[in-house]
Design a protein around this nucleic acid. Sequence first.
DNA 1: TAAGTTGCGTTATGCTATAACGTGTGCCAT
DNA 2: ATGGCACACGTTATAGCATAACGCAACTTA
Lengths: 131, 131
Amino acid sequence: MTSTQLTRNQTLVLGALSQSEAPLSAYTILDKLRGEGFRAPLQVYRALEKLLEFGLVHRLESINAFVACAHPHQDCCSHGLTAFTICESCGKVTEFHDHVIEERLAGFARDRNFKPGKTTIEIRGHCDGCA
Amino acid sequence: MTSTQLTRNQTLVLGALSQSEAPLSAYTILDKLRGEGFRAPLQVYRALEKLLEFGLVHRLESINAFVACAHPHQDCCSHGLTAFTICESCGKVTEFHDHVIEERLAGFARDRNFKPGKTTIEIRGHCDGCA
DNA sequence: TAAGTTGCGTTATGCTATAACGTGTGCCAT
DNA sequence: ATGGCACACGTTATAGCATAACGCAACTTA
């Protein structure tokens, strides 16, 4: 695990995400942090950019929102592929890692001589509680 | 295969996507169709909504863009899961279907009592030609 | 101390998507 | 045939997401 000292803004943004049950949009984060002196979207986006880089936060492409990583202590997030279920009712997000899927996608890419960068896997639906 | 008569706007939007090598954003489509009388984003979004419904077009969540379905004649797209590779250099998109991944994700959802709706799988990277 | 790097704040702008309202057309049940 | 309905369409306005470009301050390193 790589430990980096976070700046004040980064800490605040990560805190907002960690405290939230559901994923947050950048603008929602901004509103939550106005009390701390945040005034512009860029303050949020710049912090998010770093947090994503550090593997402490994930971006959910299909809903334009962000969540704190569920296993920030491990390094799993940084290289391995991360998949998500996203409940469309309550917003609950579950993060998981699957080696079989990872291999399968890697194989497909190899076959096509495609050099994979970031991979997105997101299942939107309804969680147990929201049936 | 379900065959539906497309409206003029739907035909024009699908045409724009079919002719394009790379995925197009809604606003790019709008610009391409100004000559045909398009004036507002909603004309494009409304057509896209229907085309997505018919399974003739896919939305690429990670780049906010749209592509014509590679196999519109089959029904594969409507139920089965569709995955994509997206070249970040040339924009080329390859669509594929993998039963193993599909099963694996379905199994994961079952285990968690998660009712899956739409699933997104997108690999961004670089295609053979763009190495 | 000069140059480079990094984070920060601000203003402005651009891109993506939808709300709300009204029009016209075709269908078909009465 | 006419009233009601469903649907596509057009328009204006607005909401929501993201970045460009500028300049300042703190810190590092040579």
